[in-house]
Design a protein around this nucleic acid. Sequence first.
DNA 1: CTGTTAGCGCCTTCAT
DNA 2: ATGAAGGCGCTAACAG
Lengths: 337, 337
Amino acid sequence: MTRAVTLTEVAREAGVSPSTVSRILNGTARVRDNKATQVRQAIEKLGYTPNTFARSLATGASGSVGVLTPDIASPFYNDALSGIEQGLMGSGYSPIIISGHWRTAEEEHAVELLLNRRVEGMIILGGQLPDHDLHALSARLPVGVLGRNIDLSRHGGVSLNMDNRQSARDLTNYLIGRGHRVIGHISGPSDHADARERLTGYREALEERGLKYDPTLVVQGDFQEPSGLIGMQRLLQQHSDLTAVFSANDQMAYGARLALYRLGLRVPDDMSLVGFDDLPGSTYATPPLSSVRQPMAEMGRWMAQFILARLRGETIEPFEPRQELMMRESVASRRGL
Amino acid sequence: MTRAVTLTEVAREAGVSPSTVSRILNGTARVRDNKATQVRQAIEKLGYTPNTFARSLATGASGSVGVLTPDIASPFYNDALSGIEQGLMGSGYSPIIISGHWRTAEEEHAVELLLNRRVEGMIILGGQLPDHDLHALSARLPVGVLGRNIDLSRHGGVSLNMDNRQSARDLTNYLIGRGHRVIGHISGPSDHADARERLTGYREALEERGLKYDPTLVVQGDFQEPSGLIGMQRLLQQHSDLTAVFSANDQMAYGARLALYRLGLRVPDDMSLVGFDDLPGSTYATPPLSSVRQPMAEMGRWMAQFILARLRGETIEPFEPRQELMMRESVASRRGL
DNA sequence: CTGTTAGCGCCTTCAT
DNA sequence: ATGAAGGCGCTAACAG
């Protein structure tokens, strides 16, 4: 692996000065055509690749925005990543993606790495970073947070989050409207804000409709499939009159679905089921799972544009994430209604 | 956003020379304790963040390895990404991930970007890059290719791919062994090497067992769910005696599963179904889908280690990807056997 | 152990 | 329109 070709070498090869090559590369100034041609040929011949580091050092601009995701393999956040990529495309900026693996220490380390790389803006997806860190970050550069409520407006940052409570309420109301009266809930971890809000929404919907909130109808999971499976089993043991279950996310709903399958219970005939998040897999679940869709890709795209705007000193129209109830085939009207 | 603090400023604040600060930062040499303390305090006070660009420029090492993935949101390749992250962890190297969106031009552009960023090695996941490009790349830096067969050994590169043909044969044999005689195949796009190999494996298994290969039992899909759904419908129309279907990937199997559900056909009672890839979702499908698992994460991890080894001028034990037949509940023994 | 001196590769005035 | 010169922030000899 030989040392990379430098701009100076290209200049020498083309018989011009380094500045000229630089100008041609960046279109900074008009250069006589024949020189430009010579230079291009030299570049081609030598296989020259500009060195980002040197350039960034000289210009003081890195042309990159940092993206912190909790998990590079999370189907949920990856839609947002796609959106961010899209939003950045053609802007001259490129994303630098790092995952924090849901560990605060790793996330802090990742942020540091991003800072070292002199990202000009940062997009944080969910994660565990203390609000304090986020505020501090936001004071240094444009920051956008996705999937989390935090007021960053003091330094011009934003956060985008769906209304978990409202969506959970809608979902629960949907079940109630279909005639269900004994509705279980498989919740997420209680130390998780989203999980708590979804539980609250569930409870509120029940109470608004005059149904008593029964804590034994709530079992706690951890947002992973196995906990959904176990949760469903537990609900079934305790409530033989159960007709519907609202799972706090799709993954747990898949687990719950499997529990039912194992017991020979049919969905939706014997049990209605709804999830939350509308993962890609839910459209092709058996049966297709009703859920509430978060427009992650759109949110990601908007976030990218937000950062770009701030970088240019412009502003951008605020984004109203519109959650969408995806009513599919996993819910039946209750018999005998 | 004020200009970032520099090492020189830290040095001034701490009353030492820049080199001393540098040495402390990198542990390059022993420094008297009290100075070290002063420097750390100065760093803390000023909120200093080392500039990766300047460092890389000076050392000539970027400390990063490029990763090209066809799609940042692909559940299949993302496992490999996780593996790569893991394999790199603690090595001082970090991955720079870019997606090529299955478009050759974009992929080439991405490679260029990576080269500009002076990645020291590169891992390519699948994709469309012509072999030619890969060879050229491999001559410049350590390259590993995942999910694709190409001989890069001349310049010390590697490619890791599972044996698609063998796995497809195993899968088909598995169905035959369970008594199935009329087995359909939903194939992938014919311009896709993996898809062709899987089809070949299917065909070979059939012929080895003395079953005639019937082209009308093969319908072509595009590796996406909808094409699986349509494929299954077509197979069903033409072959009323069909008892099993081998889908060239899990995603199409999900689609096929849905087609069956819609027709009221049960899996596995009325139809056995196997997929390929063993996506995370397959464990919790209804019923859990039999498939063949590619150890993507392990492959990714090994790839990372391979690159690291080459960077250090060491060698590493070759990796034998062991595909694993995941026999779950989507296959039944044929009645009346 | 620590300071001084050169660059690393590129961009950007400032002259010409 | 183009070249020369200085500097971006950091590291790595080289002297002490």
